[in-house]
Amino acid sequence: MQDKNILIIGASSGIGHALAQQLQAQGAILFTAGRTQPEAIQSTHMTWDVTKTPAVDAFTQLPDTLHGLVYCPGTINLKPFQRLTLDDYQRDFDINVLGAISAIHASYAAIKKSKSASVILFSTVAAKLGMGMHSSVSVAKSAVEGLAKSLAAELAPFNVRVNAIAPSLTDTPMAGLLLGDDTKREAANKRHPLNRYGSPQDIASMAAYLLSDQASWITGQIIGIDGGMGSLK
């Protein structure tokens, strides 16, 4: 990753921050975008609220060439179907799908110019499995998976790879209510075949790999990093 220009949207916490730390240690040149500048990360930061401003208006400090783009923002909005409103579905779609589209639009020319870029989006294991109270996030993340595959096909002639990572429950600030005490954490561990929920580093390590030249023949994939939950009983 030495001297590669990588844009991470949502690097201030969770998976995005863990990835920024890994890439910084590997010598990448980082550009970050989000509401808050990430701590202990050396980056060119662009303030952006995905729900308020088109990325093209915020991404004013991008380099001419980008070797990687990672879109990390997501939502966890778990309610029974009858309690989810149309506004809930719209918000999840805006953040997970339209935000990613906005970011890719704003970075499109710089990504294509590299002729070897990697774009990484994030889905969820709940887009593959039927999981109660996940209908809104599953709808949004299923759209992310469709976006990743379609873009992978469209950008393959330019040697630009597009993949999505589909984690299970991961110990990030967004998952705080689901891992709020020892009882909840133990129950979360037991739901996974490998008997533990995920760490930000687990997911970030796969993202770092997909950004690297070692993954130069991987595109159009939805990769489950989920402790076995998506495939094992």
Rank of each mutant, 00 (worst) to 15 (best):
D88C: 09
H45P: 08
K128L: 11
K52N: 14
V139S: 12
E186W: 02
A40T: 15
V119G: 00
K4I: 06
N5W: 02
V162K: 00
V137L: 13
W217R: 15
T44C: 15
H17C: 02
A40D: 14
V70R: 02
N163Q: 12
K113I: 11
L169P: 01
V162R: 03
T75A: 09
N189K: 14
Y108L: 15
F122Y: 14
D181H: 00
E145W: 03
A215R: 02
W217Q: 10
R191L: 13
G68K: 04
F93V: 11
A187Y: 03
Q2L: 13
L129P: 05
A28I: 04
D88T: 09
A58F: 08
L232C: 15
A166G: 10
L84G: 03
F93D: 06
F81R: 08
S168D: 07
I8V: 12
A188G: 05
G176L: 13
Q21N: 10
A18K: 02
T219W: 01
A11V: 07
H134R: 09
A55I: 03
I203K: 02
I203E: 04
V50N: 01
Y108H: 14
A148E: 03
S135I: 03
G146I: 03
D3Q: 15
F59S: 00
A148I: 05
T51F: 13
I8G: 02
R161H: 00
V160Y: 00
L84H: 07
V70D: 01
D182R: 12
V119E: 04
D213E: 10
P173S: 10
D94G: 06
N96R: 13
A25K: 11
A166C: 14
T32C: 07
A152E: 06
A204W: 02
A20Y: 10
P80H: 10
G74C: 04
H17R: 05
D92F: 09
S114Q: 08
A58K: 04
K128N: 11
G228L: 09
I165H: 06
Q201E: 10
N159F: 12
G16E: 08
R196C: 12
S212M: 10
S212R: 09
S118N: 08
